[in-house]
């Protein structure tokens, strides 16, 4: 597994909010070592039994947390992320959707200087099934195993994880890198981590229209990846010039099409599936793992 495991100590920024509170409960129920919440002005309260602090620094000092998951409103996310990095947190997962991209540019820059990893924004988080859930992914869909997943989408990741789990193909770690055009960790960083991870046998890459991240990932896979990769690309039927939900999912000036991504990945000898169940079928073939039928 990569990024998060059973020893990861997690805090929730925005723990007393509706979203933060509800997902804190689900993370705790999953078995995540959730050690604290942070909401300015709410120190001393408890959320589902975990202590709430005013500042991230105080939470880190008291709990030695090393990972933060951020649920604060969009215009407060830049500040929250910087606060976490300043307090020494090294893995920062931003769930919040709708952050102005120029705030994300600043956040990416700040976290790089502090040597902290940014996952997201506008992402479902990270799960190492059976060990740690950080974010909003529905834990019951994921099963422990040896397939690594990386995706720009949330629910599509769940769909494909479901197909894998149903086929008896558990996952080492699943990472949602987010649907925004400007983001933290890219495919290549996650692929590198999976390449080095002895617990990962094969990798599933889930992409979508817009930008050139999949093309860059394809070039990287061609050069650096020894483990087999299966890909799924969403948005083949998307009309050009229209934003398909995610801020980053748009074909402009003929660039960022599903076709271009599929061609690049094909050239890197990545198998492209056309349905979630086909992802599972291809993974079973390339990973030489026994799949249930």
């Amino acid at each position: 597994m990569i990024l998060v495991d059973k020893d990861t100590k997690v805090i929730v920024q925005g723990a007393t909010g509706k979203m933060g509170g509800a997902h804190a409960k689900r993370m705790l129920d999953y078995g995540t070592k959730l050690v604290a919440g942070v909401t300015p002005g709410k120190a001393g309260e408890r959320v589902h039994g975990i202590p709430v602090f005013d500042t991230v620094q105080e939470a880190v000092d008291k709990t030695q947390a090393d990972c933060s998951v951020i649920f604060v409103p969009p215009y407060l996310a830049l500040d929250a992320g910087c606060e976490a990095a300043e307090a020494g947190i090294k893995t920062i997962v931003v769930i919040t959707e709708g952050i102005p991209p120029q705030d994300t540019v600043k956040l990416v820059h700040y976290l790089k200087e502090k040597d902290a990893l940014l996952i997201g924004p506008n992402c479902p988080g990270v799960i190492s099934p059976g060990a740690c859930l950080v974010g909003i992914l529905p834990g019951s869909i994921f099963k422990p195993g040896r397939i690594g997943m990386v995706s720009r989408s949330g629910t599509l990741t769940y769909e494909i994880a479901l197909a894998l789990s149903d086929a008896g193909l558990g996952q080492s770690t699943c990472v949602g890198i987010g649907g925004d055009p400007i983001k933290g960790l890219d495919y290549q960083t996650i692929l590198t981590l999976f390449e080095k991870d002895p617990g990962t046998e094969a990798i599933v890459l889930i992409g979508e229209i817009g930008g050139s991240a999949e093309e860059e990932a394809a070039a990287f896979i061609k050069e650096k990846c020894k483990k087999p990769v299966v890909a799924y690309i969403a948005g083949q039927t998307a009309p050009p010039g229209k934003r398909m939900g995610h801020a980053g999912a748009i074909v402009t000036g003929g660039k960022g099409t599903a076709q271009s991504k599929i061609e690049a990945l094909n050239a890197a000898r990545v198998k492209i599936a056309s349905t979630p169940s086909q992802v599972a079928k291809f993974v079973a073939e390339v990973a030489k793992l026994p799949a249930k039928t």
């Binding site: 629910t155 799924y232 083949q236 039927t237 056309s274 979630p276």
Partner: peptide
């Protein structure tokens, strides 16, 4: 629900 899943659903309808 979700942009990626919506696109994937459209793609499958077409396929």
């Amino acid at each position: 629900n979700g942009a990626g899943l919506t696109m994937a659903t459209m793609d499958m309808v077409k396929a």
